[in-house]
Amino acid sequence: MAAPQNTMTRRYEREPARRVFAAELRETTYQFKDGTEEMSPSYILLPTGERCNRVFIVGTITEKRRSEGENVFYQIRIVDPTGTFFISAGSYQPEALQQLSSIETPEFVAVIGKPNLFESPDGRTLISVRAESITKVDRSVRDCWILDAAERTLERIEATETTPDRQTAQEKYPQRPEVWYRIISDALATVEM
C-alpha cells in the first residue's frame, strides 16, 4: 500500500509517568536513547526494570531555593517516606515556575517531571527531575500516591515476563527485590487509616 497510513493517522501516545519511590529513583544510574536520532526520546532505566521518561511524584516539599542571577531557576527537595527527590524548574518550565512561586515549605505537592542523569566530576551518577508542573495537594493525595507507587513498584519487581528492559536492568543493577519489598512495606506503614 502506497498510502502514508502510519504517519497521517496515528494518534499521539503519551508516555506514562512512572510511580517511583525516591529510594528507587536515587539508585538509577543508566540512561539510554530509544533510537539513534538526535530527537529520539531519552529514558532512564529503573533498577526494577522499566524504562521511564516521566515521573509522577507526590511528597513534601522541604526546601525551595531560587537561583541568584538573571534567569529564574528553582531547586527543590521533595521527601517521600523512602528518601528525597531533587527537583528543578527553570524558564523552560513556565507552568512549574509560576506554581512554585506561591508554594512555601513544608507543603504536600504533586510533581510531574522528566528525570535526568548527571555525572559528577568524580564519575558518580546523580539524578534530578525537571518539573513540568507542581501543584499543592493534601495528605489524602499523598496517601493515594504511596499506594499507587507501592503497587506499581510491586508489579515491576514481581513481573515474570522477560523484556529487553528487564534484561538490561539485570545487567546494570544488582537485583535485590527483598530491599524493595522492605522499602514498600515501610512506606505503606506511613499511611494512616
Binding site: Y92, L126, S128
Partner: peptide
C-alpha cells in the same frame, strides 16, 4: 542543601 546543580534556564 546541595544537589546535582543545573544551570539556570539551561536547555
Amino acid at each position: 542543601f546541595r544537589e546535582p546543580e543545573l544551570h539556570p534556564g539551561g536547555q
